[in-house]
C-alpha cells in the first residue's frame, strides 16, 4: 500500500509502556489482533498505518533505511549511531519520558579524581608509569570517544560492553566506565561515582522521523494534539 504509515515502537520494558501511553494520550490507541507477544499492531482511528514493535536500537536503524517512517527511541541510541545514519533521521519531538544521562563513572575510592581534568592526569599516569592505557568499558563507544577527546583525554582504550558495565572496574576488565543512568542508584550500589563534569549526554525518548518520508508525515504530526 503506497501511503501506509509504518511506526516503530520499543518492544519491551518501560520505554514500551510509556510509548504506548503517549500514543493513547493522543487518541491513537494501538490494538493487536494476535496474542500478547505479537509484534504487530494497528491504530483504529489512523487508517493506513501499522505499528511494529522493535528493539529500541533497531528502531534507529530501520528509520535510517526507511523500513519504518516514524519511531520512538532514545536520543542516546540515535547519537551513538554512525553519522551517516544520523543524517537520515530527524528528531521531531523530545518526549517527557525515558530521561537519563550518559555519564563517566569512576570507582568511588579514587578520591583524588573529581573532574575530567583529574581523569586526564590519571590517564597519563597510566601511560607514563605503567605503559598501558586507561581502559573505559562502555556500550557507547562513539559518544565516549567524542566526549573524552574533546576534554583532552586521549590516552585510553575502549572496552566494548554489552551490559552490567558497572562490574568491569572491579573484575579487572576496565578501570572506569561510561554508562546510562537515570537515578544513579545502580552506579552507587556498585561503588561507582559520576565525575562532576562527566555528563556526556542528557538523553530522553524522542519521536523520530525518517527524513526520506518526512514530507508525507505532516498529517500524522498534526494528529498529535497532546504533547
Amino acid at each position: 500500500m503506497k501511503n501506509l504509515l509504518t511506526i516503530g515502537l520499543p518492544s519491551k520494558g518501560r520505554l514500551k509502556e510509556e510509548s504506548i501511553s503517549f500514543f493513547e494520550k493522543n487518541d491513537l490507541k494501538p490494538t493487536s489482533n494476535g496474542g500478547e507477544r505479537n509484534y504487530f499492531a494497528q491504530i483504529e482511528n489512523l487508517p493506513n498505518s501499522k505499528i511494529i514493535y522493535l528493539h529500541a536500537k533497531e528502531i534507529v536503524q530501520r528509520l535510517g533505511d526507511g523500513t519504518i517512517d516514524v519511531g520512538i527511541s532514545g536520543l542516546d541510541l540515535l547519537k551513538e549511531s554512525p553519522i551517516n545514519l544520523q543524517k537520515k533521521i530527524e528528531v521531531k519531538k523530545k518526549l517527557d519520558f525515558g530521561l537519563a544521562d550518559v555519564v563517566v563513572a569512576i570507582p568511588n575510592d579514587w578520591i583524588d579524581v573529581q573532574t575530567v581534568a583529574d581523569l586526564e592526569e590519571v590517564s597519563f599516569d597510566f601511560r607514563d608509569k605503567k605503559n598501558i592505557r586507561l581502559r573505559v568499558a562502555t556500550k557507547y563507544p562513539n559518544l565516549t570517544n567524542n566526549f573524552l577527546v574533546s576534554k583532552g583525554i586521549t590516552q585510553y582504550e575502549i572496552v566494548p560492553s554489552l551490559g552490567a558495565t558497572e562490574t568491569y572496574p572491579f573484575i579487572g576488565s576496565s578501570e572506569i566506565i561510561t554508562d546510562i543512568t537515570s537515578t544513579g542508584k545502580t552506579l552507587k550500589d556498585n561503588n561507582l561515582r559520576v565525575l562532576k563534569d562527566g555528563f556526556i549526554l542528557n538523553s530522553q525518548a524522542c519521536l523520530m522521523f525518517s527524513k526520506k518520508k518526512a514530507k508525507n508525515l505532516q498529517t500524522f504530526l498534526n494528529s498529535l494534539t497532546y504533547v
Partner: peptide
C-alpha cells in the same frame, strides 16, 4: 589495588592536589 591503582598512589595524588 582499586581498579588498577594502588591505595598509596591515590592518596599521594590527593595530597598533592
Amino acid at each position: 589495588e582499586i581498579a588498577n591503582r594502588k591505595v598509596s598512589e591515590i592518596l599521594s595524588r590527593f595530597d598533592r592536589k
